[in-house]
Design a protein around this nucleic acid. Structure first.
Length: 419
RNA sequence: GGAAGCGUGCCAGAGCGGCCGAAUGGGACACACUGCUAAUGUGUUGUGCUCGUCAAGGGCACCGAGGGUUCAAAUCCCUCCGCUUCCGCCA
């Protein structure tokens, strides 16, 4: 939810953000009107309640003769209050829905849609091979590391087994990610992956992307698509102490995505799957520090990408391609040789106060006053990285060189050999 | 799954249907006193919304959540959630 006070002060800024996203700027006026209407309703209801309270107190000490008249008046007032409160509730609901309709105000994101991203940096050169490179699934099958056939047999399309060195490789990568995070002051977390509707709603995943989310109706719980959800909800309705800097968590979890609407896209291998594992960074900080924290998270992602030695580029994601919670987002995309394309490996979003406002996460400013905190998140490693690692480090015989940083986590192994 | 009890402010812990936003104790903070520390004294010690110049200063709401009864509810009733204990069940 955007800041209503800021909106009242400068509606044009929000309209400009809407335009950059390709969203409807008219929603801003709708929200302003709903805000004004609600405040008017609050004032009316407050006035009636004041009158009712005053009268109510006088009844207690009134003498018996005056009582019946006062009670009569009290009953009438009670009815009026009831009506005013209903109007207040209705205006509140209208405000909430208008409020939710507006995504976060962008902060520097390039205007436009998905293809309007700006490349910030290239790191490394697209890998050159003097042989015909195999794709990650062929390599993974050769290593007996990835089994999508049996994944489909057991669970359906877009499911897989990681076996043998495949399972080990993933654990190596996630462990490296967690160790890296801990080294940078993140508190490691293994969160619940089933969450209540409030948590899912609060993080903004039940909006336009709600059909991406697995729901368990029998228990009214949702399977998270990222540990961002439980980590963001972890401090909901709390006032944090941010006086000594951001509070940082690194969540290790499985992630579940329905991938509705991506039929036929990336159907081969493990690039786009219903279940994968991820180490995710999550920061709570003073909004004044959020932009700097965002660059920091990007830096940690780049440190991980350097450790697995894959070529990649960093993009500044365009406004229209941001989620509703993000004000700005940087993606790191690794080179995938058999696709001759860059594919997303990490994504870091600055959600400013948008997510925290809905979740009720606050902190005390220098004057001791509660203020809404900023939240940020970013990827440190996911199952998808295996794609880039296998493809970029493959050798002519189908073996795969292990990046040095991963070796300690793989018993010192330098090469994965076809089984 | 069954039964009983409990859910109040940073913590502990009172609370008669109106005088309770809420006693009291502790903690924390501020000031005073003391050469310093300790001790002592005094004071402060919530959050949201709203009116107001996001001032001074008002108003309203909040005692697990949501409903209800009543002129009036932390206090009565109902539903739900959570915690504790006992029984059963499954490991």
């Amino acid at each position: 939810m955007i800041d209503l006070r800021a909106l009242r002060d400068d509606p044009e800024a929000v309209k400009a953000s809407q335009r950059a996203r390709g969203a409807d700027p008219g929603l801003v006026d709708t929200l302003l009107a709903a805000d004004a209407a609600r405040r008017a309703a609050v004032v009316r209801a407050d006035e009636l309640r004041t009158e009712q309270k005053t009268l109510g107190r006088s009844i207690g000490k009134a003498d018996p003769q005056e009582r019946p008249a006062l009670l009569e008046r009290g009953r009438a007032l009670a009815a009026d209050v009831k009506v005013a409160e209903a109007a207040e509730a209705e205006a509140g609901a209208a405000l909430t829905s208008a409020h939710r309709a507006i995504p976060n105000v962008i902060e520097g994101a390039p205007p436009g849609g998905e293809q309007d991203f700006v490349v910030l940096e290239h790191v490394g050169e697209p890998t050159d091979f003097d042989f015909e490179p195999k794709d990650h699934l062929a390599l993974g099958e050769g290593l007996r590391a990835i089994d999508t056939e049996r994944g489909a047999k057991v669970s359906g399309a877009r499911f897989y087994f990681l076996r043998g060195v495949g399972a080990q490789l993933q654990l190596a990568m996630l462990n490296l990610a967690l160790t890296t995070a801990i080294g940078h002051g993140f508190v490691p977390m293994i969160p619940p992956v089933l969450v209540k509707p409030e948590a899912m709603e609060g993080t903004g995943f039940l909006g336009e992307h709600s059909d991406e989310v697995y729901r368990l109706p029998a228990d009214d719980l949702y399977l998270v698509g990222t540990s961002e959800v439980p980590l963001a909800a972890y401090h909901s309705d709390e006032i944090l102490d941010l006086s000594s800097g951001p509070v940082r968590y690194a969540g290790w979890s499985s992630c579940f995505r329905r991938e509705a609407g991506s039929y036929g896209k990336d159907t081969r291998g493990i690039l786009r799957v219903h279940q994968f594992d991820k180490v995710e960074m999550f920061s709570y900080c003073d909004p004044a520090d959020a932009a700097a924290e965002h660059r920091r998270l990007l830096g940690y992602e780049q440190e991980m990408l350097a450790a697995v030695e894959v070529p990649y580029r960093v993009i500044d994601v365009a406004a229209g391609d941001l989620g509703s919670s993000a004000a700005r987002k940087y993606d790191c995309e690794a080179w995938v040789p058999t696709q001759q394309a860059y594919r997303e490996l990490t994504s870091t979003s600055n959600c400013t106060t948008f997510q925290a406002r809905r979740l009720g996460v606050r902190f005390r400013d220098a004057d001791g006053r509660p203020q809404v905190a900023a939240t940020l998140n970013g990827t440190l490693a996911t199952t998808r990285w295996i794609v880039a690692i296998l493809e970029n480090h493959q050798q002519a015989d189908g073996s795969v060189r292990v990046p040095a940083a991963l070796r300690p986590y793989l018993g010192g192994r330098e090469v994965l050999e076809p089984a």
